[in-house]
Simulated assay, not measured.
Amino acid sequence: MKIGLYFGTFNPIHVGHLIIANHMAEHADLDQVWMVVTPHNPLKKKSTLLADHHRLEMVFLATEDFPKIKPSDIEFKLSQPNYTVNTLVHLEEKFPEHSFSLIMGEDNLRSFHKWKNYEAILAHHDIYVYPRIATTADPSENSIFKNHPKIHMIDAPVVEISSTSIRENIKKGKNVLPLLPSKVWEYIDHNNFYKK
């Protein structure tokens, strides 16, 4: 089975994440998309994250009606901080019957050459890239990957919703209902998350 791995802190998961995951599951040559909840992204302050099990529960609630999209806690068991190359090795050992690909935004592709052991990742795994609104970054930065046979540009919808702005708006008492799956909003509201 061909699995696309969509990594994120999902703090919280929102409809933008689901739009991308579902598009990849339905339109790329992937059998499933696993939403890998990252316990601690080396580039993010851990103090801003909800506890791992709460973020995993929100991903579970958001994806239970999507048979091709699965929550994954695979990184919870690995040493911190997590590096994608280590996660991929672990997954290949645990699930030898699957092949694993990465799903990332165009913005991440621009900095992919800075990832730990990125050459090894690219040698063994396909990468499915979804578009982001163009930034002022130099477009030549990702030219080393432009025609790479392992990199597939997917014409997915451009979705610019940020978990950060959702958290900020919840704190301000604004209505964020259109941005979250209803079960996720109920979970956040019930637990009083992001309110202070």
Rank of each mutant, 00 (worst) to 15 (best):
K45C: 05
F66E: 09
M104S: 05
A123R: 13
Q32Y: 05
L78V: 02
E106G: 09
V37N: 10
A28F: 08
N41R: 08
K70S: 02
I127V: 14
D107Y: 00
H125M: 07
Y128K: 14
D107I: 01
D73N: 12
R132T: 01
H54K: 11
K45E: 09
V59I: 00
N142W: 10
K70D: 01
H40Q: 15
N108T: 06
V89E: 09
L50G: 05
S72E: 01
W34N: 00
L43F: 02
N142H: 14
D126L: 14
L91K: 00
F95V: 01
S111Y: 09
Y118F: 15
W115C: 11
L88P: 06
L109M: 06
A62T: 02
F76E: 11
N86W: 04
K46Q: 12
G105T: 00
A134R: 15
T136V: 10
K45G: 09
N41G: 07
L50Q: 11
D29E: 15
H40V: 01
N82E: 05
F100M: 12
P42M: 10
T136Y: 13
V36P: 00
E75D: 11
M104A: 08
H90W: 03
K46D: 09
K94T: 14
N108C: 07
A123L: 13
V33D: 06
P96H: 08
F100K: 08
L122H: 11
H113D: 14
K46R: 11
N108D: 10
E92M: 08
T87A: 01
T84K: 07
T135S: 09
Q32T: 02
A28D: 12
P81C: 01
D65N: 13
R55K: 14
N142D: 15
E75A: 02
K70C: 00
L61Y: 08
V85L: 07
T38L: 06
D52T: 03
H125Q: 13
A62F: 00
S111I: 14
F60N: 14
E92H: 10
K70A: 02
N41M: 06
V37C: 13
K70P: 01
K77Q: 13
D65K: 13
Q32W: 08
I103H: 08
Y128S: 12
S47A: 13
P81M: 02
L88D: 04
E64N: 14
H113N: 14
D31N: 15
N86A: 06
K45V: 02
A51L: 09
V85R: 05
P67F: 10
H98C: 12
P71W: 03
S99H: 11
P139G: 06
T87K: 02
S47H: 10
N142R: 12
R110I: 10
M104Y: 09
P139A: 10
L122C: 03
H124G: 13
H98V: 03
D65R: 09
L102E: 07
L61T: 04
M104Q: 11
T135K: 03
F95D: 04
